[in-house]
Each structure stands twice: as structure tokens, then as C-alpha cells.
């Protein structure tokens, strides 16, 4: 029997599941679009990854991360719940021991994590603006009628990237249209967009951070070769894109699952066959005081598993 550890990362755009072994080797991975339905997506992903796994793998630990980590932990039966910043840092330092900088760009958020001697010393995450994230490129790609997968290849063919204002996604778009109408070719415009995103990222989350090599570049956006090139050009060094750049958060969670379940001596993992279980949430407004908190109740086959959302703790119930 091989021991496997499950990591589930449920973000705004994608849901990633991985199973790793004791040597951090990937045994299986699943990448799904969350599509605003985290519960169903996790159920689907779990049964899919269960089928992918070799028969001799037994899940010895599970962990969840991402913005829906608490909800997901109830569905999966997680041994540990961790925020995605810590999860990313753990995955990267497990792969590249002396990593000093992590650039992570996802669908709606982007972060920078600074590590020294294997310890996180500083981090930042975009706050009120999504201009420096994957959805910015997604939008511009659909405007140019190019699939996001081809985006990077266009950028690599550029001879003279045009300068596009990248501070705001909306203004970038009008700037881009302007450049198109001036007659610049698509390749140069796309490379310009990549550079605009990098500039925005560096001025926003990267501001005031000491960026030292090795620099890892991960998150779904790292698939874009044009961006890798733009980062190399801006930073004057070669960023490292890990093999499994898209699922680093879940790899970090899986590593944490291994540590937690070893410490605990067992796992709370519920198994892969949760497709039949009916998970649902129902909410009500508490009338206890003027705060009128919206209390969410989480049910597994009509059995109340958890309640949250109240500020005073009166309704709180955690079955884990």
C-alpha cells in the first residue's frame, strides 16, 4: 500500500486537487473550473481524482486551502485547513529549497511572497484592483478573439512590444484599442499587454519588496510564456516556473496534510465516494440583537454539520 496525501485548493476561478506521496511526487491531479459552485465542483473533482489514482494508493491525510477552504474542509473531511499564502510558500520551498521570492498570479488575485532561509518574512496580495491578475489577460484575449492558451505564443513573436497603460483594466482596454487603430500588429500588442501586467504587478503587490533569486513564478497565469518573458525582462533574471505551476497551492496543502495526519496518527478524510451525499447550505437571520447576523447552516444528508456567520458565537457549531 502506498500512502497518498490529498490537497484541495478551491479558488474563485479554479478548483485544484492533487494527491502526493511521501516524496512529494504527484500521484494524480485534477483541475476544474469552480464556476461559482464550490460544493458540486469539489464532489466532482474528488470522484475524478479517486478514479485516476492507482488502486494501491490509500489516502492517509487531507487538507484544504483557497478562499473556500472552510466550506471544502467539511465536505472532504480535512485534517488541516490553511490559507493559500502559506500553502504556496510551503510547496515552493519543498521544491526549491532556497527559494527567496514567489510570484503567484491566479484568476482574481495575485500575490508575492518573500522567504529568507525557508521562512516567510513578508508577503502582499492585491487588494482593491484586479488589473494585475489573470482575468485581465482573459478579458483582453477575448477582445482580440484569441484563446488564452495561445496568448503567450503571440507575445513571443513580438518584435516591438507597444507600451500599454496597465494601471486599470478598463483603461488598458481603451489604450489597446487605440494602439490597434494606429496599426500595430497583434503580436506587439499582446506582448505589450504582458509587459503592462508585469509593470502593474511590480508597482502594486511588488512595491517595496526586495526581490532576490531564485524567483518562482506560479499560478495558472504562469502557463503564459509571454508573461514569463516579460518578468525575465523586467527583473533581469530567469524566473523558475515549477513543473506543476498551476496546482502549487494544493501541493502545499497536501504537504501540510501529511504533517498534520502524522502528528494526529489518523485522518478525517471521508473517502472519494461522496458524490451520492447531498450537501447543502441554508441560512437564516438571527433575531438575537440588532446585528442581525446571517447564520449559515451546512447539512450533510439533512444532518446539521456546521453553522457559522454569527458574530457572537451563539450559533456556532463545528463538527470537525
Amino acid at each position: 500500500m502506498i500512502k497518498g496525501y490529498l490537497g484541495v485548493d478551491v479558488g474563485s476561478v479554479s478548483t485544484n486537487l492533487v494527491v502526493i506521496d511521501d516524496q512529494n511526487q504527484l500521484l494524480a491531479a485534477q483541475y476544474l473550473r469552480t464556476s461559482g459552485k464550490p460544493i458540486e465542483t469539489v464532489q466532482k473533482g474528488l470522484s475524478a481524482i479517486g478514479e485516476d489514482l492507482p488502486a494501491d494508493v490509500e489516502i492517509a491525510g487531507a487538507a484544504t486551502t483557497g478562499s473556500a477552504r472552510y466550506l471544502t474542509s467539511l465536505i472532504v473531511g480535512a485534517d488541516v485547513v490553511k490559507n493559500e499564502i502559506t500553502a504556496h510558500a510551503i510547496a515552493s520551498s519543498a521544491l526549491v529549497e532556497d527559494v527567496k521570492t514567489i510570484i503567484e498570479i491566479g484568476g482574481q488575485d495575485s500575490k508575492i511572497i518573500i522567504l529568507r532561509e525557508g521562512v516567510v518574512t513578508d508577503f502582499a496580495m492585491n487588494t482593491v484592483c484586479a488589473a494585475g491578475t489573470g482575468s485581465f489577460l482573459d478579458q483582453q484575449a477575448s477582445r482580440l478573439l484569441i484563446s488564452i492558451e495561445d496568448f503567450g505564443n503571440y507575445a513571443l513573436k513580438a518584435k516591438n512590444p507597444v507600451r500599454i497603460a496597465g494601471r486599470c483594466a478598463v483603461f488598458a482596454e481603451s489604450d489597446m484599442v487605440h494602439k490597434q487603430q494606429l496599426g500595430h500588429n497583434t503580436e506587439d500588442i499582446i506582448a505589450g499587454l504582458c509587459e503592462a501586467l508585469v509593470r502593474n504587478y511590480m508597482n502594486n503587490v511588488g512595491k517595496g519588496k526586495e526581490i532576490l533569486a531564485p524567483v518562482m513564478f506560479q499560478g495558472g497565469v504562469a502557463a503564459n510564456a509571454g508573461l514569463v518573458q516579460a518578468f525575465n525582462k523586467y527583473l533581469g533574471l530567469e524566473v523558475v516556473v515549477p513543473q506543476h505551476y498551476g496546482v502549487m497551492g494544493s501541493i502545499g496543502a497536501a504537504i501540510l496534510a501529511r504533517e498534520a495526519s502524522r502528528k494526529k496518527g489518523s485522518t478525517s478524510f471521508k473517502g472519494f465516494n461522496i458524490q451520492e451525499i447531498n450537501f447543502k447550505t441554508r441560512s437564516f437571520e438571527c433575531k438575537g440583537c440588532s446585528n442581525a447576523c446571517e447564520v449559515v447552516q451546512f447539512f450533510e444528508n439533512n444532518e446539521l454539520l456546521a453553522r457559522w456567520g454569527d458574530r457572537c458565537g451563539k450559533w456556532e457549531l463545528q463538527a470537525m
Partner: peptide, 29 residues
Amino acid sequence: PVLTLFIDEQTSKAGVQTRLEAFVDLLDK
């Protein structure tokens, strides 16, 4: 270590919670 949080109209608590949890992890380590 200093964590700066900018506050605007966005009302989601989740983003703040994520940053705070990561910051607490950092301080703990």
C-alpha cells in the same frame, strides 16, 4: 513585520481573513 490593509467598499471578509491568517503564520514561524 508590517501588513498593510487598504479598506474600501469591498465588504468581503474572506480576503482580509486570508491575509491575517497568513500574517499570523508568518509571525508564529
